[in-house]
Design a protein around this nucleic acid. Sequence first.
DNA 1: ACTTTTTTGATTGTTTTTGATTGTTTATGG
DNA 2: CCATAAACAATCAAAAACAATCAAAAAAGT
Lengths: 249, 249
Amino acid sequence: MLTTERHQLIIKTVKNDQTTSLKRLVEVTGASESTIRRDLDQLEQQGLLRRVHGGASLISSASEEPAMREKVTKSQKEKRLIARYASSMVQPGDCIFIDAGSTTFEMIPFLKQKDIIVVTNGLDHLQALTEYNIKTYVLGGLIKSRTGAVVGAGAVQNLQQYRFDHCFMGVNGITIQDGYTTPDPEEAAIKQMTLQLSRKRYILADHSKFGNVAFTKFGDIQSAAILTNYEGPEINDFANKTNIKVVTT
Amino acid sequence: MLTTERHQLIIKTVKNDQTTSLKRLVEVTGASESTIRRDLDQLEQQGLLRRVHGGASLISSASEEPAMREKVTKSQKEKRLIARYASSMVQPGDCIFIDAGSTTFEMIPFLKQKDIIVVTNGLDHLQALTEYNIKTYVLGGLIKSRTGAVVGAGAVQNLQQYRFDHCFMGVNGITIQDGYTTPDPEEAAIKQMTLQLSRKRYILADHSKFGNVAFTKFGDIQSAAILTNYEGPEINDFANKTNIKVVTT
DNA sequence: ACTTTTTTGATTGTTTTTGATTGTTTATGG
DNA sequence: CCATAAACAATCAAAAACAATCAAAAAAGT
């Protein structure tokens, strides 16, 4: 049986039974426990079901959109890999900031049951965070409708009441010369302030971000550590300036 | 039987019987007393039922708080009618506060192209507001995952930087004696502060809210105008205390 | 045909869940 | 008020489920 076939079968079974035991899935598919566990991990990552002790259940909310969830793109896989590594930096009890953006969004499933406090300016993140029962604060301020991010002077001010163990930021451009850059000055202001308020600072950037320069700079290279999957030759130049972790698997 | 399944079964049984003995739950689920006790602990923690000596009962009505998605379909037509009238109070250029909750949510489509600024503490409102291209500020603070509302001390503080032409609030209970009440003290604090910051104050309440008293009071009857579809005889008593508009069509 | 990569299932030790047992608290009837 | 029984919380060891690891099998690439 093909992996994708098996995934389909699992989803179908869970949909049908509302909640299904791992043993039953082993029976239905004929695969081993290990394989089913791996499958459930993946399917949960894709938001198609929820793992529970002993099996799997439907996603709690009625927001099940079987066809809506598109297939995982390549860049999404890269982002998820980086996000997974980033999440491993987070320890129980930490207070962290998660920036708006698609890369940082991928961190959320990996933060489940970490017993942490999250502050974010990404509206898309909120639903996911609360669904995973993660204690979440939203930054107050103007909503930039195009990106679903909270920005503006009020947001910067609101931010200053918090202090973070870690912050995880997205970025649009990284070069040695120009540091970290992003198109929107409003969002840059948030990022800049967040960097100041955090003990440990991480930039999440897939390979496509390297060598680009966007409109607004929000930090020098050395102002944060870089988590990436970029393996180009210039990596060493960056490594001389700051911590950089290349995530490959 | 999976833990999740058993939890579902317990909730279903309690909902059905209003109050259930531990022994009965042992029979129904086939689990041991110890397990059921642990389950009840957890479910009580989640606010889904209340433990009593010998078993469990439904959450008492005063602090009951139906989850958001249950509320939506209930008496949506009534709410929409009230919400439409409420929206007609809003003039171009106004800055308004829209409270979290299903009734106020219905206002949003009627605010399209009004050229206004909206502040809200309802996460569910945000997506709708931005979709209608309404300039929106979100209140910063802790997210209460059950209702999707922003609450907490930070939120109250954050609120104080704003002043509103109008505020539109939901409510759980209205009586002459006890004024406006709501189950959650945290949300009540937000409502109370909002009332202070607004020039014109409106409570949106369908008929089911009249005569109820919830746990926390956030205002006297005269502290806001009431918009409702309730046509009972006591309406005149309320009318003596405050402005009340009965929306019928 | 051979190497490399991916997938799979078995095995490991660890964590979570469970039911029995303990002694303590609470309700109730005399 | 006391005695008694039921309900309770706390503890513990067994069982189930788990994540992590590894080598074999399958698939893909050369």
